[in-house]
Amino acid sequence: MFALLRKEIDSFLNSLIGYVVILVFLLSIGLFLWIFPGTEFNLLENGYANLDSLFILSPWMFLFLIPAITMRMFAEENKSGTIELLLTRPLSDLQIVLAKYGAAVILVLFSIVPTFVYYISVYKFASPSGNIDTAGISGSYIGLIFLCSGFASIGIFTSSLTNNQIIAFILSVLLCFFFYSGFDFISSMMSTGPVGILLSQFGMSNHYASLSRGVIDTRDLVYFLSLSSFFILLSKFNLEKRKW
């Protein structure tokens, strides 16, 4: 299982797409946080020593970038037929899915880690230097990682549906968007009754809202873990279809 996980990470980092994804993420986040004037995300203009903008923007970036990471994981294997080789290995279907999922989450961590530079910059810029809420920001990072693992599980699932990477990518952007804010739209279209509230509970943004501020609620963690397991199980179900 770990061999497969390593293989996935290696093949990602040996291809151009890995670096493009990480570069695009850091470039766009960096531009929004430090360069573009007149937006509410610009840290220097706002003049507050926090990283709130990072945690507001990142989900929208990852909405496109995580599907780009996960799109080839099953789709390419389905297309080239190497999925047959993989399935004859002494690994259970669940282990294969988990290895790919783990690889996706680790790759996302690779792109999150360089943002610590922003933390260090804000830490130095703060007046007096170091006047920044480190604990709160670390809580927000935990929230972001949970959100990303949710996106990754959706990406793995859509990749297992098809043998075309582009279809996998588009489907998973759509599904990620639907789970991130689609439920909010539906609930706001409906009345503010209990049904609307229940529906908004299914959405990720509802659960990410407090996590991104550094408030870790056990319910939100359980939600993200269940969401990931749900899509991992769906992918496993998809793999099992071949036996029928």
Binding site: T134, G136, G139, V215, R219, V222, L233
Partner: peptide, 29 residues
């Protein structure tokens, strides 16, 4: 199919239980 449905039911159940038993950890200073 049965495995999948069972797993989904368990997930829903876990979430309902978690909804009533929850704690919030405020990381902010």
């Amino acid at each position: 199919l049965i495995q999948l449905i069972l797993a989904v039911l368990i997930l829903v159940f876990v979430n309902i239980v978690a909804g009533s038993l929850f704690t919030r950890f405020d990381f902010t200073a």
